[in-house]
Amino acid sequence: MGNGADVSHRFHLLYLGWWMKVLKTTNQKIALFLIVLSIVYLILSFRLPPFAYVPVDSDVVPISLGFLLLFLSVLLFFKKDRESEEGQSNRAIPKQEILILVAVLLFILLYIFLLERVGFILVTTCFIFVCSWFLGYKKWVINAVVSVLTPILIYYLFTSFLQIELPQGVLPI
């Protein structure tokens, strides 16, 4: 990647979109998000039903937390610290890598979705094999052996020895 800086620059534009122009620093963007969060949390806290029999009701601590976060976010908004270089380089990720990350997250999502429907052994086998391959592990024999044996081993360890049930799914075991 010779033009890493260029790529990351393009990514910034793509990801952060129009409000980049409105808000100058990262701190301000995060602060704005946190302010919204604290207001939503405060609204929910104020709507908690009252309970008559205790001196300090269930809404007191949440309300305090909400105001505290609001206060801290405002401070953050006006804070003009130069972010550490580490923090900045953290965010300079090539676009292609972002796509890989998102793809893995989608794999996990699919894994969770199918776990109880298809069963632990099948889904886990597929997941380990596909995910490892996708991330660049090309020794497919080892990969296949690991992805078949690991789930079977775990399944029997859990269900027979630990007496903890894992989703059996469609396999007739």
């Binding site: 099948l122 597929c126 094999f129 596909v130 391959w133 996708f134 469609v170």
Partner: peptide, 21 residues
């Protein structure tokens, strides 16, 4: 090739899921 394998695996899994015992 990889994408093909991917699709194939999940198709298999899905069919298995739908034909529940």
């Amino acid at each position: 090739k990889m994408a093909g394998a991917l699709v194939l695996t999940f198709v298999l899994v899905f069919t298995a899921a739908c034909s529940s015992s």
